[in-house]
């Protein structure tokens, strides 16, 4: 039996959708007994906490304070650890977004807890939880166990489908904000630069159109019409991001975003293992590449050997006909 604390992630005054994957993890980890609660932490958490009331949590804990306006690990981690301790939780979890990956290890160190990062599955087995983790760029899975009583775990958004509301209304409770770490006085938020886009987030999109080095400076010019026609998110290979054809936050792969949409287009992407690690869980994969030997064709359900600069505009026209 485990009692799980889910740490929600906030964005622009709302709960980020990625949080729903950690809720799915919590439901799975408590399937053999136990309950889960959700900590909503950040400035504006009180207002946002209602968004999570109907997911079956035992409690919604709210840590709302002006000092938590911008995410700074040294300000968030002390409260998360204190709430975990006060509630005698066995497992603390947040989705393995850049937020969860930055925050959870520091929380684990405060709790003396073992940390299982970026897991793809959890199995409650004989009072213990076993965690399945992709390693070596997804080329092997390890079955990990943590040896500590209290455990910290980050589940992958791509492997834990977003939880649906289960009804009811969880009671909410205000929790105290713990003073920040001494180190917090040495970190200052400067600014957040984000290319605001109307497109869905990579982690939530049903369709993703990804481009590689081959797109060159025409990256957006070629891919945007296809993404617009499909209501898709845009992704990129590392080579495309490094070259500045696409912003870094669009990188899909071992060390970028890990995605598993219903439909993934890999356009002008060779299919290095680091890229495959981030997308081979997609339901249907399409590859367009002029090199018939490109490794991407080994994972593609549908491969088209063609010059993308001709094939993609044609594809836009044909897709518009059938939508």
């Amino acid at each position: 039996m485990s009692n799980v604390l889910v740490v929600a992630e906030m964005l622009d005054g709302h709960v980020r959708k990625s949080t729903h994957s950690a809720i799915t993890f919590a439901r799975k980890a408590t399937a053999g007994g136990g309950t889960f609660s959700i900590l909503v932490i950040g400035a504006g958490a009180q207002a946002a906490s209602g968004e999570l009331a109907a997911y079956g949590a035992q409690k919604i804990l709210v840590a709302d304070d002006a000092s938590l306006k911008n995410y700074i690990c040294e300000r968030f981690a002390p409260t998360v650890a204190a709430v975990a301790k006060a509630g005698s939780f066995d497992v603390v979890t947040a989705t393995a977004s850049s937020y969860g990956k930055d925050l959870l290890p520091r929380v684990a160190a405060k709790l003396g807890a073992g940390y299982a990062p970026d897991i793809s599955d959890v199995t409650p087995a004989g009072g213990k939880l076993s965690y399945k983790r992709p390693m070596y760029a997804g080329n092997a899975y390890g079955h990990a166990e943590l040896t500590t009583a209290i455990q910290v775990v980050s589940p992958r958004q791509s492997e834990f489908a977003a939880a649906e509301p289960s009804g009811g209304a969880s009671p909410s409770e205000v929790v105290a904000v713990t003073p920040p770490d001494a180190a917090a006085s040495r970190v200052e938020f400067v600014s957040m630069e984000s290319a605001k886009s109307e497109r869905p987030d990579l982690g939530e999109a049903r369709v993703i159109v990804s481009g590689g080095r081959a797109l060159k400076e025409q990256f957006a010019q070629v891919l945007d019409p296809l993404a617009n026609a499909l209501g898709a998110a845009v992704g990129a290979s590392r080579a495309a991001c490094d070259a500045g054809y696409a912003p870094a936050e669009l990188q899909v792969g071992q060390t970028g975003r890990v995605v598993a949409p219903a439909l993934y287009f890999a356009i002008g992407i060779s299919g290095a293992i680091q890229h495959l690690a981030g997308m081979k869980g997609s339901k249907t994969i399409v590859a367009i590449n002029k090199d018939a030997e490109a490794p991407i064709f080994q994972v593609a359900d549908y491969g088209l050997v063609a010059d993308l600069f001709q094939a993609v505009p044609e594809l836009v026209t044909e897709i518009k006909k059938v939508l």
Binding site: L11, S18, Y71, I72, S97, S98, Y99, D102, V187, E188, F189, V190, S191, M192, E193, S194, A195, D201, G203, P247, A248, E249, R257
Partner: peptide, 10 residues
């Protein structure tokens, strides 16, 4: 480098 873009800290 974070999910939504670049977060600058000092």
């Amino acid at each position: 480098e974070v999910d939504g873009g670049t977060l600058n800290v000092k």
